[in-house]
Design a protein around this nucleic acid. Structure first.
Lengths: 218, 218, 218, 218
DNA sequence: TATGAATGAGGATTCATTCAT
DNA sequence: GATGAATGAATCCTCATTCAT
């Protein structure tokens, strides 16, 4: 029952941790930083989350569970909708979810680039599911002749690079391209780009590509 | 002349640092770790590089200078070759360079996702150049009617996501897709994918796309 | 309220620091030395005082606040008593205060001979007050015709040299003069000397010097 | 013969050490600081002076030998001149010598306030001599009825406080009294003050004090 | 003389965690 | 739930010195 209780302090800790992990990373953030930002006693972090590591794990799994949950929901639509419609919906769902959890997203995507047992576990638990659901969509697209045939693995990798980029490198977008990565407009515009990619790259080169390109928000 | 000296110890430190920064990140690596791995006295790190931070900066700038240098070389070809040929060559050069400096690449790409003054400096110094050279190629492609018109900023972002992905997330590739990301084959295959992207997404939708797709190494 | 807490450990740290700073100076004393002498964990020093520097500042300002406070009290008597009586009382108060805080006195007097921003701040904060209160006494002495006219600046300097000497150079007194500088007798005797100086040097050469010389403790 | 050689490097080291020891003290100065300031290789300091400690000892003894030498010269005049004249000359000689070696003076006076074996040695070697020569002058003054009878120990202490003060606390003089302690004028003026002290305090209270006060430089 | 690489000890500080309250 | 004192390990860095050249 313990972890069900949701006090103000606990919420504050979570918020503070998200922000600090986001900008400074797990190793760059101290529990005292978090406690101070949360206006809370240091030892509470151990009390609530079983230490700094526990806190980070909690945040990562929370984020990733929501993430794969989005994919799962889309996956269920495969029976009713076209593969392309599902893929489009998947991309939109992922982008929206990540946008809503921007800070966590950056933290998780970055932390996943380390070599550690925790990361390995996350890989086999969550990212395998991600690959599974995406694969299902692509497989449907191939068998229904909606998608241009190609390697699922490589297309998923490429997609993953594109999907994580805006959340992993917001400062790059801001400093180099002078675009505000947190604004809804940016996400919509970037998503539109992805949908064009679906049109031209995933479905492209097929005679049947006669459906007019999908455009988010009209 | 002083800082040009290149002793065995210094080289060992560099190698050890690259490996450790690669897997554990800057904050996750201690100078003791590095010194031990290099078989060298801890204080030599400060002696050579002005501290851990100096070492990291040295590695990052070394990598990035090589990186933008590759792009600069390709950029010079714009006068002789087609924009598409240049873009293809740029992607190949970047992938090859990163592959040859895999460990540094992961370190730099990851470290760039933090918020810090150093990162900001790197942004304005190196990544702006990256954007500049890529922009020149795209602009040429647009004006020569080789590329499908679109926003340079967004296409560069998308491209950057795809280019950094294999080096930033090798463990993902290995654990989830069961592909060895360090093998030359993988890089060639992934690059091939990128060139298809050039064909279909960058040049696509143009009637004139009659040149058969470029395939690396035959 | 937080910094008002006064635990045993904190008191022990303060005592140990006073003794070590006294004999070995700030730079000559390590936090480990202090912690060991205090029987306390090293990190507590940073915990309580924000590091070694903070500890030193705390000690210095504590001492100096008491110091100027003594002078302020005497300064208030100027309305009721003669300037000479006040000067005498000031010297006695300063000598007594320093005697009671011998170890701190040596530390502070010594540390003040360095060039640093901290020292400059102390100068403008505390020693300016010292000069101010002493000046007021001397000015009163001059206008009331009690003191032989002379430069206040130079007399204050000379006085400062005499007042700090016994605390700054106890080992000199012990080794060269074979007098124990910590004994009350020494301070009384030295103070008596100072009062004679007041008689002969400050008030001297005036026809009106008919009050018989003040003698401490009878 | 080694220490007789006087290369440019060695002189540079000495000058750099004097300046740094003066402002930052022995413990606050690193051999690398000295070497850098001297524009010389670090290891030369060990080579020349047998380490940092040797360098400091060299500087201190050099200064103190000159110091007691000044006193010795005055002491020899006791046979020809009056005690008061000798005392006056002694004070002037000490002040002049210290002024000419201001930076060393501050360093030595400060370093002498520590508890260490080196300091103890210096006490018994040099400061005992100082006391000896001063005592001889005072004894002469007493027996010749020139000086008001009093304790030699205490008067020497008081004198020492006054003599060291301007060199030990130059920053105090500058910051609090806004007088430049390095200017010749200051030393002359301060010395004048000391001579008045001789007049009024040492010789004072004697009917015979009819010689008009000595004034340096006219 | 002079150099600079290299060392090992020690510097202060920060860290995550624990524990009694 | 919440506090803050306390700990011990680990952080990075600086130190004076040595040594082969």
């Amino acid at each position: 029952m313990k972890q069900e209780r949701d006090t103000v302090s606990k919420r504050n800790v979570i918020q503070a941790a998200i922000q600090l992990f986001n900008t400074k990373g797990y190793n760059g953030t101290s529990v005292r930083d978090i406690a101070n930002k949360a206006g809370v006693n240091v030892s509470l972090i151990s009390y609530y989350f079983n230490g700094k590591k526990g806190l980070a794990e909690f945040l990562m799994t929370t984020f990733l569970e929501g993430y794969v949950n989005e994919l799962e929901k889309v996956h269920k639509l495969l029976e009713k909708k076209s593969a392309k419609a599902c893929l489009v919906e998947a991309l939109q769902a992922i982008m929206t979810y990540q946008h809503q959890n921007r800070q966590l997203a950056r933290f998780v995507h970055r932390e996943i680039t380390f070599d550690s047992v925790l990361v390995r576990e996350i890989m086999t638990t969550y990212l395998s599911k991600e690959k599974f659901y995406l694969s299902k969509i692509f497989e449907a697209g191939f068998s229904r002749k909606e998608f241009r045939p190609q390697s699922i693995d490589y297309i998923v990798m490429q997609l993953r690079g594109m999907l994580s980029m805006p959340f992993l490198q917001p400062q790059y977008i801001l400093e180099v391209h002078h675009i505000k990565p947190n604004e809804t407009y940016f996400i919509e515009r970037y998503t539109k780009q992805l949908l064009q990619w679906v049109d031209l790259y995933i479905c492209g080169d097929l005679k049947v590509v006669k459906q007019k390109p999908f455009v988010m928000n009209g």
